[in-house]
Simulated scan of single mutants.
Amino acid sequence: MSDRATRLPAEWEPHGAVMLSWPHKDTDWAPVLDDAIDCFVEIAKAIAREETLIVVAPDVEEPRRVLDCEKLPNRILYLTVPTNDTWARDFGPITVERDGNPVICDFKFNGWGLKFPADKDNLITRAMCNAGLLRGCYSNELSFVLEGGSIESDGQGTLMTTSQCLLSPNRNGAMSRDEIEEYLKSRFGLDRVLWLDYGALEGDDTDSHIDTLARLAPNDTILYVGTDDVTDSHYDELNKMKLQLQSFVTALGQPYNLIELPLPDAVYDEDGNRLPATYANFLIMNHSILMPVYRQPQKDELAAQIIKIAFPDHQVVKIDCSVLIKQHGSLHCVTMQVPETILPI
């Protein structure tokens, strides 16, 4: 473990809870609300088997009614708060360690570069702190736009991100790449930032969040999405991404252990638009990996086996997220891990 004064923990380090923002009729989930709720219930059940579950919603009685019926084994913390949508990864609290103490960083969420309303979601982290749902030092970082799905940390001073997202003009357009990198280094105690310049999934509204493409894992490992199908529209971009990943080296100057995840077969919406299905959008919990699947049994199982290579001590739990990609996200996107140290006693 690093002894650096400021540190952004890796997702595979122990944590105490996972946050969900519950879907409701006033979100874009309305046309498929029942299916979305069913998916969230499955995610909630998997979380509650080993960690505290945090649920935020405009009316917490709705998720409470559903989850009470499941008789979940661990505690559930609820907070009534207005929400625009359900993508907790991108507006939820990002917790760092400073001098051994947790600091709850509240970055600005502007709807992925002003694409969608975010005024309510942008207030949720502060509301969680004000309500006592989270305890610890609150750090107002609202002058900088940053989504949790856009960054990957190894907990040892290396952060991986994509240039397409963090250099988007509608996020922090007044800042140069060097300025953004220095900001990230100062806030997260980083030694270096790995910028991924290639890779994009059709239907992705996030400008290529890293958690749809490539994920850091223990033992200097990177799991990434790839395809050998030259007829797939993603082939060229993903191949360029693969080549760039092969050029990345660890802090000690060694190549990363690269493990390729399959690209799911193309999934389309009712208008014929391709949806951003990806196996990289998994959640790392203390003992389990919650992995999205898309009703493609052979590829779903292959992806689970591959993820198990990187996380041999974890159980891989497959959850059907076919409905989530209808709103252009997946399992990691709707969750945010929370350390034990900032939970209420």
Rank of each mutant, 00 (worst) to 15 (best):
E179M: 10
L302N: 04
G203M: 04
P297K: 04
H24C: 07
D35I: 02
E62R: 11
P117V: 12
D220T: 00
M19L: 15
I94L: 14
V225G: 00
D313Y: 06
E340L: 06
T6W: 05
D229V: 01
E237W: 02
R171E: 06
S143K: 13
F116T: 09
S330Q: 07
W87C: 14
A10T: 03
R192W: 10
R65S: 13
V145N: 11
M285F: 01
L245I: 01
P9L: 06
S153Q: 04
M285V: 05
P169A: 11
I306K: 09
T221N: 13
K240A: 06
V338P: 09
M336C: 04
Q337P: 05
P82D: 05
H24N: 11
I259E: 10
V18Q: 05
E13V: 03
Y235P: 06
D211L: 02
L133C: 12
M19V: 04
L53K: 14
E141P: 03
V317S: 05
E202N: 12
R75L: 11
P93F: 02
L213V: 09
Q244H: 03
L263G: 01
S150Y: 14
F109E: 07
E51S: 13
R98Y: 03
E147G: 09
F282K: 09
S247D: 15
T231Y: 08
D236I: 11
M1S: 15
D59Y: 13
V230L: 07
L123R: 14
T83I: 12
I307V: 15
P117H: 14
S208W: 00
C137N: 12
E62P: 02
F40K: 09
G136F: 02
R126W: 01
T278G: 02
M1W: 00
R89E: 10
G199Q: 07
K25Q: 14
P82E: 14
Y294V: 07
P297N: 06
Y224F: 13
P14K: 12
C321P: 11
S288A: 11
D85C: 02
A251G: 10
P93C: 10
D59C: 06
V103A: 15
A200W: 08
I94D: 04
I180V: 15
K326G: 02
G132Q: 03
N239S: 14
P73R: 08
Y235M: 00
V230H: 00
M19D: 02
I319W: 11
I54R: 08
H332P: 05
A48Q: 10
A174Q: 15
I284M: 12
V316M: 08
D205P: 10
N74H: 15
S150G: 13
S176V: 07
E42I: 00
D68H: 09
L258V: 03
P23K: 11
